[in-house]
Design a protein around this nucleic acid. Structure first.
Length: 262
DNA sequence: ACTAATGTTGTAGG
DNA sequence: GCCTACAACATTAG
């Protein structure tokens, strides 16, 4: 479910519901989602007040009056403020007003408490919607291929497979292009494409390609705007040539062989 | 039965 | 150190 626009949508749909609430009880059932002692985590959260909720990259950061709860949705994680528990519910929070559920069939997501900023968040690169063109160009001085670089969270925090493919398509850049070979013009085009795509996707509530929903159970609509991702064999919206799918950095990568050049 | 799926991390080798 | 491939985590859908 979760790249920057989806996580941003979840945060926006959950923030007002959580801010100022007190955690009366919490229960965890997955040793993968909540590594270490689940009882200890629940004990730590008992009675804590939620000060604020924000996004950093693909992480949801819940500031408590003591410590920080950091949530990553992995591949199939959901944070819901309504609904009921099922076999994939691995976190249940009872608040002084309302509930919060964490569901995650694949259990690639994580819910972790830390005294300060989570070490995983510390390692993240800049926010793609905030980085300047100058800094973006400096960070492109690498020999790796563009698709792999866009997926690297220490380069930029928040792009995943969908928005990497969509950004490269919008900028007309082949996914196998070596990063440091981009001309200044094409680097600027990519910078603008990333920000434009992410902004548009947030406006549409993210992409619901299988079952992504925000915290209120509502779907996003940006999947209707996909030009490359998931369109293998379908005609390019610009030139009509079939979209091609290749493997880059072990991830399915969609691009137009005519519009996207190295 | 087999493959791929919105992600991250650790290991090995060039 | 940088870069790449691969495996692992666990489940579902086609």
């Amino acid at each position: 479910m979760p790249e920057l626009p989806e996580v941003e949508t979840v945060v926006r749909s959950v923030a007002a519901h959580l801010a100022g609430r007190r955690i009366l009880e919490s229960k965890f059932t997955s040793k993968f989602v909540t590594p270490g002692s689940r009882a200890k985590l629940a004990q730590r959260l008992l009675g804590r007040r939620i000060e604020s909720v924000r996004r950093r990259g693909k992480f949801i950061i819940i500031e408590l009056d003591e410590g920080t709860l950091t949530v990553h949705l992995g591949m199939t994680g959901k944070l819901l403020i309504q609904g009921q528990t099922n076999q994939h519910t691995h976190g249940v929070f009872t608040l002084d007003d309302g509930m919060l559920f964490y569901q995650d069939p694949r259990q690639f997501g994580r819910i972790e408490w830390s005294a300060g900023e989570s070490p995983r968040v510390k390692r993240l690169g800049p926010e793609p919607l905030e980085i300047s063109l100058d800094e973006f160009r400096v960070r492109l001085k690498r020999t790796t291929r563009m698709k792999a670089l866009l997926l690297n969270q220490t380069f930029l925090a928040g792009l995943g497979n969908i928005y990497a493919d969509e950004s490269l398509f919008a900028a007309g850049i082949h996914p196998l292009t070596q990063a440091n070979k981009l001309t200044a013009t094409r680097a600027a085009r990519l910078h603008r494409a990333i920000q434009g795509i992410l902004t548009h996707a947030i406006q549409l509530g993210g992409s619901s390609i299988s079952d992504y929903v925000n915290a209120e159970g509502e779907r996003g609509w940006f999947q209707m705007e996909h030009r490359a991702y998931g369109r293998e064999g379908e005609p390019c919206v610009n030139c009509g040539k079939p979209i091609r799918k290749i493997l880059v950095a072990q991830r399915g990568t969609h691009y137009c062989p005519r519009c996207q050049k190295k």
